[in-house]
Amino acid sequence: MDHELQQLIVKAKKGDQDSFSELIQRYKRKVFRHAFAMVHDQMEAEDITQEAFVKAYFSMDHLKEEFAFSSWLTKIVANLCYDRIKKREKQPQLQMDPEQTELIADTQSEVENLQLKISLQLAMQKLTPGHRTVIVLRDIQGFSYQEIADILEIPEGTVKSRINLARKELRKELLRG
């Protein structure tokens, strides 16, 4: 972790809002991506992002080590996403509009590429929140198995087997289309 970032976190812990604002600027994309990959809804993901930072600000006291800021923040986001998904379990899932694809893409390969990405997002929505979470943490956020174990408070062996299962599920859903 670079020294500047550490200083920002130390100052934010003391309640300095300018430093916290800079932390938001640094981490907002990461937080948003996580939320989006969990809920697949632009507005809701932005709302979760906002809520995560507000929550983080008021619980900075609980952050024991500055170097763990990223994991700690991710834990907050992961929990928020879980709660949201639980609340809306019965609601219909958002579907992508295939016509939109043709508007953005020009060439055949671009169309195929976009369709693949849309299929992936649809397949991700079919996974259980637990499976989706480990995929997000590993392949979208790039955390190590050890870090994921710390974030989710589960053994590393469980992380390993859960990622393995989640990917099998995801590939099955992708092939199903």
């Binding site: 907002k28 948003f32 991506r33 989006f36 997002q121 995929i135």
Partner: peptide, 10 residues
């Protein structure tokens, strides 16, 4: 996975 979600913006 990483390329799909990487390009999303707020």
């Amino acid at each position: 996975l990483s390329s799909t979600y990487e390009e999303l913006e707020m």
